[in-house]
Design a protein around this nucleic acid. Sequence first.
DNA 1: ATGAAAGCGCTAACAT
DNA 2: ATGTTAGCGCTTTCAT
Lengths: 342, 342
Amino acid sequence: MEKEITIYDLAKILALSPATVSRALNDHPAINVKTKMLIAEKAAELGYRSNTFASHLRTRKTNTLGVIVPRLNSNFMSTVLAGMEEVANNFGYNLLISQSLESEAKERANAKTMFNSRVDGLLVSVAYDTDSFDHFSAFIDRNIPVLFFDRVLAHPQCGNVVIDNEQAGYDAARHLLDEGCRKLIHVTGDLRRNVYADRLAGFQRAMKKADIRTDDTMILTTDLSQDAGRSVAEKIHQMDQKPGGLFIANDLCAVTCMQALQERGYSIPTDIAVVGFNNDPVSQVITPQLTTVFYPGYQMGKTAMMAVVGQLNGTKPLDFMEPIILRSELMIRRSSKRSESS
Amino acid sequence: MEKEITIYDLAKILALSPATVSRALNDHPAINVKTKMLIAEKAAELGYRSNTFASHLRTRKTNTLGVIVPRLNSNFMSTVLAGMEEVANNFGYNLLISQSLESEAKERANAKTMFNSRVDGLLVSVAYDTDSFDHFSAFIDRNIPVLFFDRVLAHPQCGNVVIDNEQAGYDAARHLLDEGCRKLIHVTGDLRRNVYADRLAGFQRAMKKADIRTDDTMILTTDLSQDAGRSVAEKIHQMDQKPGGLFIANDLCAVTCMQALQERGYSIPTDIAVVGFNNDPVSQVITPQLTTVFYPGYQMGKTAMMAVVGQLNGTKPLDFMEPIILRSELMIRRSSKRSESS
DNA sequence: ATGAAAGCGCTAACAT
DNA sequence: ATGTTAGCGCTTTCAT
C-alpha cells in the first residue's frame, strides 16, 4: 500500500512551491523549461498521479461525459458506443455509460446521477416511453450541452444526430412496390419515437404516391422484439388478404418473423417480400438474406461525440446546433427481390 | 444559469451548521428526524446537489468502477456490460467503460486513466495480445480490487469469473465425434488467452480419448474474425483430406465460414458438421442453425459486478477470491446433427 | 520565473 | 443532537 504522492511532496523534495509544481505539471508557459523537466522527472520517479477530484473541485470541469442508451446489448447501440468511446478517448474524455432499459423512470434516474456526477456533457438516445423533457432541463439551465442521437427529442438548445428516417422508410416501401407488391404491411414501434414515426411517414408517402390507400390494418405497432416478430407472423397467417410485402422497422424482429413465416410454409420473397432496418449482422446470415436499411452506427457515435466535444472546446457555438443528418442506404438483398431485373 | 447551492447556503438559511446539514443529507443516525426532513425539504426546494468531487476528495471513495473490454460492439460483451450496469446501478456505483480494441497498448492507457480517475474497483477482460500484468499492479499495490472476467489473467490477488472452457471444448469435440466425424479441425484464437487455450485443451482431450492423433494441421490459429471464417473455408477447400467436423471458437466466424463453404457447394452438416461458440443471435438465424456453446453473458456481468461490490462493501474478504465458474451448455442444433438418433 | 495564501465543498474528529 | 474546525489536493490571483 504505497502512500499517495501530492504536489506538496514534490514541492518539498525539490525545494519549490506547490504552485510552481502545479504549473509545471500543467505545462504553464511561465515556468522554466528546466524546472519543468526536473519536476516531470521526479513526478514519474515517485509515481505521482494528479488527484482529479481536487482538480475538478477547483476547475469545475470533470472531463467526463454521460451517455444514456435504451439498452447496451443491441448490436446497433454497442456499435454507436464504440464510436463514441473512440472519439472521447482521443480527446481525453471519460465516458459514464448507463442504460434506461427502455423506461422513462430509469432514464430519469440515470440523468439525475449524471447531473450529480457533474458530467461536462450528455448524450442520450431516449427510451421507448419517454414523454417529457423535464429530466434534461437541469442540464440546459446550467449550460451543459445535451445531444440526442438516433431516438431524439426536439429542443432548440439540444443537438440532434439522426438519419433521414422518413426517406429511409420511403425508400423501403417504394422498393417493395417496385418489386410488384401491392398490399404492404408496416411493423413499427412506439410512434412517440421519431425513428418509428418518421419511417411510418415515409412508408405512407410512398403508398400515397402509388395511389394505394393505407388503413390501420396495415400498420402494426409492436415493441419490435423477437416475440413481436413471431406474433406478426401469426397475425399474417390469420389474414384473409395476405400482404405481398412486409416492412419491419428492426432487423432482429424481421428475422424472427421471417423464420416463423417460413415454418408455416410461406416462401420468401415469393409469397411475401420482407425489408428490415438496421443492417444487423443477422440480416446477412438469414436465408434468404434480408433487405435492410444500412444505419451508420459507428459513424453516428463518432459524429455525436465530436459535436459535443466541439462545443466543450468552444470550436462550435454553444447556443444552437443544427441537426446532423447522416446518410443511410437501402441494402437490397434476396428477401425482397422477386424480379431478376435491375 | 442558476447558482450552485452548497451545504453552507443550506446551513445559513436554516440557521444550522454545515456539519449538521452534511450529516442530515447522509442520513446520519444522530440527527433528529425532524431536522432531517427540514433540511431535505429545503435542499429539494433550492435544487441542491451534492458536489461529488468535494465529497470524493474527503472520503477517497469515488463510487465509480472501471470496466475495460476488448470491444464494446460484440454481442457477448454488450450483454455482459448490460448485466454489470444493472448491478452497479442497484448498488449506487457508476461505470467508467472503455475498450482496448484488442491492443495491449491501449489497454495499458485505459488502465492508467482508470487509475487516475481513482476508480474504486476494476473489471477487465483482457485484449488479444496482452502479455504482461504490469499495468494492473498499481491497483493491487493500492488495494483496489481487480477482477478479470471471461478472458482472464491468473493472479493470486485478482478475482476471476469464467466458464469451464476446457469442458466446453471437450463437449463440443466429443459431440462431433459422436456424430461420426473422424477428422476434426479446430479453429481457435490467440492461445495466450485462457478462453482459447482451454477450449483447445478440451478439444485435445476429447481427441485423445477417442484415440485420434491430433497434429498441427488440425489446429488453425486465427483472429476469429469474419474474414478468418472465409479463409478457413478456402483452406478447407484446398485440403486433400477434408475434415468431417469443424469446431470454431466463435459464432460470427463460424457462421461466415459456413456460408463460404455452402457457396462452394459443401452441404452442412452432411459434408462437414460445424460447432461454434457463444450462442450469438446469428447462430439461430443461419441455415442450418448452428450448434454452439451457450455462454451466460448477462449472468457473467452480474456475477462479476457482485463480486467486486461485495469486496468493496466488506461483505467478502479482500485478500483472495476463488475463481467463479459459471455454467455453460452445448446447444445442439442442425449444423452438426447427422444421425437422427437421440 | 517563482512564491504565498486563499478557497473550491465536503466530512469527521473532537468538542459541547 | 448539534457545532467548531481542520484539512482533503489542487489552482489561481496577487505579490515579488
